[in-house]
Design a protein around this nucleic acid. Structure first.
Lengths: 230, 230
DNA sequence: AATGTTTAGTAAACGGTGTCAACTATTAGA
DNA sequence: TCTAATAGTTGACACCGTTTACTAAACATT
């Protein structure tokens, strides 16, 4: 964070670098990120970038944080443009948004949920809050549905005591106003959707299941029933 | 594939290179693979490796193929050391083996199911057969359970027609001796397990769910019921 | 035993990379 | 106008995958 003459210009440069970085990653993969290449596209030499990002890894961190918030916003938007009382519809659209984000902005998605980047460890104090943000969107629709009597979650006695304890910790730590069974539903849903999306994203499904989009819809419809959405 | 004086020595060198490559990947990530580094560890210069692998990508392909077969063997072993008629137990142990493989041999698992390596495209004619191999292990226990009347799969009318068509294609193409609903169960199971494992592997669960191992067991137990194993 | 051929490896080089230190314009303020 | 900070450059270092040309050792044949 060097002293800056014009904040706006500085921010524009910051964005320009990140945009070019994303473009480069989407062509060549998340871990082939060339500072010299970015600099070249910007008509500038490589060391100039060090004024904006102390190192290649700091640039990556910025991209990850951006990715998380973008995903959170996307999910929120999907949730918002729906009738509040239509919990099945809201949940379905959040899941669809999750999938679309993964496929359309696969660079961001891979940065968030894919292989860790070699030699790079995300600073937890930066990323954890954003993880929560994504997670929260999922939770809200579950909680609201339950409170409205539109969600019949799995009874708590079907959960392992340690898992119950873990879920209780989340609830108290993040002050989520709900019970363990509802919280569990969030994870059951997330893990399922994530599995389908991950396999589709890396093309492990298309050679087996035919139409992956319809397969997703199929899984989603069944999942909604299993989760106890009424 | 150059002419070789001593086949055994050649194969030993091949294995040594791959072993060092895996070691390097497990320390630095799957995409930071340095031929020069491997050569250094072997007390040899970098171009010498080109006698064994035409390029860096061919080395990666070899590692991926190894990973697939290792995973398949692991799952087969897990299936084998169990009573044949205990279908719930067999399926559970296969899933546990899948998870353990992901966690213990995470390099191989990431090579198979993780982000593609920048600039590298896996030759399909090499990898697809091995994909089938892994998939087959999952299928067998489903088919045998169904034939023994120990599996009540989802009725076919709950599946989208296009998904049914896709599953029928797999069945005929790979000559799997079973019906669509059974085949569907395999995918429902795989996607779920894969999601949980993927999230645990990259540490997205441990900060939320407490004990990830027990969470897995929990999900597994519920899944087995949902799939219709009797 | 001497010769020619194949094998296994080396040395040098090319163009690429992230990063650092030192230096130079340009700009802003006193 | 002079000073100080900013925004960049140049040049270097050590690394990378890969290619080309070359060498030393081992083998087979005469």
């Amino acid at each position: 964070m060097p002293r800056v003459r014009d904040v706006q210009l500085y921010d524009e440069m910051l964005e320009a670098i990140k945009t070019l970085a994303r473009a480069q990653m989407s062509q060549e993969g998340t871990s082939s990120l060339s500072l010299r290449g970015i600099a070249r596209d910007l008509g500038v030499t490589a060391p100039a970038l060090y004024r904006y990002f102390p190192s290649r890894d700091d640039l990556i961190t910025a991209l990850i944080v951006d990715g998380f918030t973008a995903l959170a916003h996307t999910l929120e938007a999907a949730d918002a443009n729906h009738d509040c009382a239509d919990y099945r519809g809201r949940f379905a659209d959040i899941c669809r948004a999750y999938r679309r984000f993964a496929l359309e902005r696969s660079v961001d998605f891979q940065l968030i949920y894919g292989n860790p980047i070699p030699g790079y460890v995300a600073p937890k104090e930066v990323t954890v809050p954003t993880v929560i943000q994504v997670f929260t969107v999922f939770s809200i629709v579950f909680i609201e549905a339950f409170n409205a009597g539109k969600l019949k979650p799995l009874p708590q006695d079907r959960l392992q005591p340690t898992v119950v304890a873990g879920l209780e910790q989340i609830i108290t730590r993040n002050q989520v106003p709900t019970d363990v069974p509802v919280m569990y539903g969030v994870f059951a849903a997330w893990t399922k959707i994530h599995g389908v999306v991950m396999l589709e994203l890396f093309h492990h499904l298309e050679q087996t299941v035919g139409d992956t989009a319809l397969f997703f819809e199929n899984e989603l419809a069944l999942l909604i029933d299993q989760l106890g959405f009424l």
